[in-house]
Design a binder for these strands. Sequence first.
DNA 1: GCTATTGTTGAACGATCGTCCAATACTATT
DNA 2: AATAGTATTGGACGATCGTTCAACAATAGC
Lengths: 205, 205
Amino acid sequence: MKKKSDRLSPPERRSQLIEATLICLMREGARGLSSRKICAQAQVSVGLLNHHFSRQEQLVAAAYEESSRRHHETLRARIQADAQNQDAPIKTLVSCAFEEDIMHPDQLRAWVVFWSKTIDSKMMRATHDRINERLQSYLIEVLAQSLPNCAGDLRVLAIEYSALVDGLWLDWSLNGKHQSAELWQTILNQWLDRTLALASAPVPD
Amino acid sequence: MKKKSDRLSPPERRSQLIEATLICLMREGARGLSSRKICAQAQVSVGLLNHHFSRQEQLVAAAYEESSRRHHETLRARIQADAQNQDAPIKTLVSCAFEEDIMHPDQLRAWVVFWSKTIDSKMMRATHDRINERLQSYLIEVLAQSLPNCAGDLRVLAIEYSALVDGLWLDWSLNGKHQSAELWQTILNQWLDRTLALASAPVPD
DNA sequence: GCTATTGTTGAACGATCGTCCAATACTATT
DNA sequence: AATAGTATTGGACGATCGTTCAACAATAGC
């Protein structure tokens, strides 16, 4: 037997289980949310899950948090890397919205599961609210940099943007014939163009 | 015993089961999708379900179709009833988007379930595509009436609109503190104002 | 009124679910 | 080296899942 030591520190094991959860949810959606499948993915016995997470709900909430954290981090990295658009970082955000590591259809599979759990779980709702507020704050920050002379409420604009992007992702991912994201990307681009044009000249009256 | 005849014609029984499914999904979300719960809601024995629907998948697809049909019908009725806005029926559509019978948070519970099933079921995906295309055609029709002089592609605008509305509904329904839809309604109103303004004067160059 | 058809019932089946827990294996402390 | 503490295992439990099916009840055709 080559097994010498499979023991990990609790934080390592926890994040390993979270990783396995994300893989299962991205692969199978709601059908992948199973203690046994997740533990099999992590190559770990079933009982271990409840040693590190008291209930499945807590694992899912942690996975939601982690998925959002990664998403957020990827966005930050993209904006930071794109120095030439620093005057309007929202352009960078928009232009990479449908790239593979930002939003893959598989990832939306997992998100739909998170949303469905958010509906009937207090803890998931709290997690969702926290995640949402973090992303919203960041979006406001990005918009403030992009539209320094905007008269309108940036928070409102941030909600509109994230709603639009979520809706486009949904439509794109659920669509039966989603080869390319070109159409949805174009829609988002046009929305940005219009928004930027209006924000620059907000008083045509 | 007062039971004289509980027997219904197949179409009646089918729609009764579909109705029960919608109630269960709206009440409990994914947890409500259970043959036994649905049959209990319909006050009917478990075995009857598989007599009228060969698999649960077919029942869910039928419920999705029915839910969309009702939604569509309600929208049509609103627009038809609102005669004064006949020049821009999109205004009517927008202004009632968050009214109770158009989109209740409970209804989104059911929709999230439909979406999650759309991800890993061929039949559900086909149903989703059919539903989506019907709604899109209607939206294009409404937009054509509202923007007779619009130079842009109405199909693209329709996709943007429905994505935005879906996203706003999601954000509104999942939000922990969603007392009033006022904020989201305002966002949608402002989007429409901007869109109408640009469509009326599309060549500022 | 008899028969064929069909809507309806509810028990039963096997599968899978989340969780629990006694036993075990590993690590750290003394 | 002995002990305490904990990470890990995997079987067991009860619940619930979707589906099947033989039996029953209501209807339709004759």
